[in-house]
Design a binder for these strands. Structure first.
Lengths: 215, 215
DNA sequence: CTAGCCACTTGATGTGGATCAACAATCCGC
DNA sequence: GCGGATTGTTGATCCACATCAAGTGGCTAG
């Protein structure tokens, strides 16, 4: 893990999401590490033992098959926490999607953080299980609709939704190709459900229709 | 939840899997509930607040879409624990696949079980994320191979693997139809990778080949 | 043993999304 | 602002798996 560690810069932490419980005493307050777009935060197989909270930017968590097929299991936006593992090893890769600031909480060997971690782990488990339904049983348009609704909610429920990630990332998250993602965006636009403001931001015009599509 | 509660019957609990840490004092030792094949253990929307450990039999955890499409997110075999949720509500259905014995641990309101629960939650999270890769990026034969390898490992790594569930259950777990599951079994048989001993048990003939297919 | 049912298998055909192939738009360095 | 690289869109074709449709075999009741 190579980070451009910016020591104790104070950046506005707009934590819209439930943030890491402040049980880390002030003495364990950590500096923010900066990761440029595309840089690795940790790799599969590396030794785990820290938690990461996104301060700004966005992170993708993924696995690879031997032939290069990639499955992104989660995106993490500002305020969200990631990095916990079942054992001492990372089973996934984590990369900054854009220029991203990450606060690292190194887990003290003896400390028992289970009380703080359990809600986060359970939240992640529920999320992953809901994503299983999407990948296992929904078609392309339903997948994209569910994705946009989820992203919109995590950004505060406003009409305008920012897409910090590329079409390829979206495809690898939804189990689709970039061409299909692109075509579905066009279809949703033609139906008047969304508007494409630019490549990386959309406006949800018919929230109810989109919601219904994603079930 | 309607169970045929067998009070304090002592059944051989062949827990091959990491069992629920014995932190439940002996005074909280629970009787075993019996669920006939197909019966509901809990339903989506019900109030949660207990943990369940399979003593014998098998359980499926699933969600439904409005039109009846079903995604099974997990199977639980003897020794495995399920039932924890991120909030006080069940987000999934749990059903006994076969005649199944379940030990129920009701979580005391005040008690802090996070230390015991965290490893289980993290295990489940890793499992779910690995399943995402299967559903998002693997084809039919890879999915079935990965499923058989996983099931084999959970049954102690023997050559013979029991399938407690129907083709429909397997299909709804792997995001395939029963016809495709059946055809893949036939293809694996024709390739000499497995043998179909009967409908509900197979023998893995070429473990290495199967393993490689499931990546 | 026999009848009937249900789960599974096998075959024929259809189709949603992948793949292959241009082309267009956006970004970036100079 | 210009040129090239990168990312996204659109079109044509293909194919893996779904769907539709018969069978087949194994269990259960009588």
């Amino acid at each position: 893990m190579h980070a451009y560690t910016a020591s104790r810069i104070s950046l506005s932490p707009h934590s819209a999401q439930p943030s890491l419980p402040a049980a880390f005493g002030s003495e364990t307050q950590q500096p923010i590490s900066f990761f440029p777009a595309g840089s690795e935060i940790y790799a599969q197989g590396e030794r785990a033992g820290a938690l990461y909270q996104v301060e700004f930017g966005a992170v993708r968590i993924y696995r690879l098959l031997a032939d290069g097929r990639r499955q992104i299991s989660a995106f993490h936006l500002a305020g969200e926490t990631f990095g916990f593992e079942a054992d001492a090893t990372h089973h996934f890769f984590a990369e900054a999607i854009n220029a991203t600031g990450v606060r690292t909480f190194r887990l003290a060997a003896g400390a028992d953080m289970s009380h703080q971690l359990l809600p986060l782990a359970l939240k992640g488990l529920t999320r992953a299980q809901e994503h299983l339904l999407v990948l296992g049983r929904q078609n392309a348009i339903e997948r994209v609709a569910a994705f946009l609704v989820d992203l919109g909610e995590r950004q505060g429920g406003l009409r305008q939704v920012e897409l910090p990630m590329s079409r390829m990332d979206i495809g690898d998250y939804l189990g689709l190709t970039i061409e299909t993602v692109s075509r579905v965006f066009t279809r949703l636009k033609d139906k008047g459900v969304i508007r494409l403001l630019n490549l990386r931001s959309i406006e949800i015009v018919k929230q109810d229709v989109l919601q219904a599509m994603g079930e």
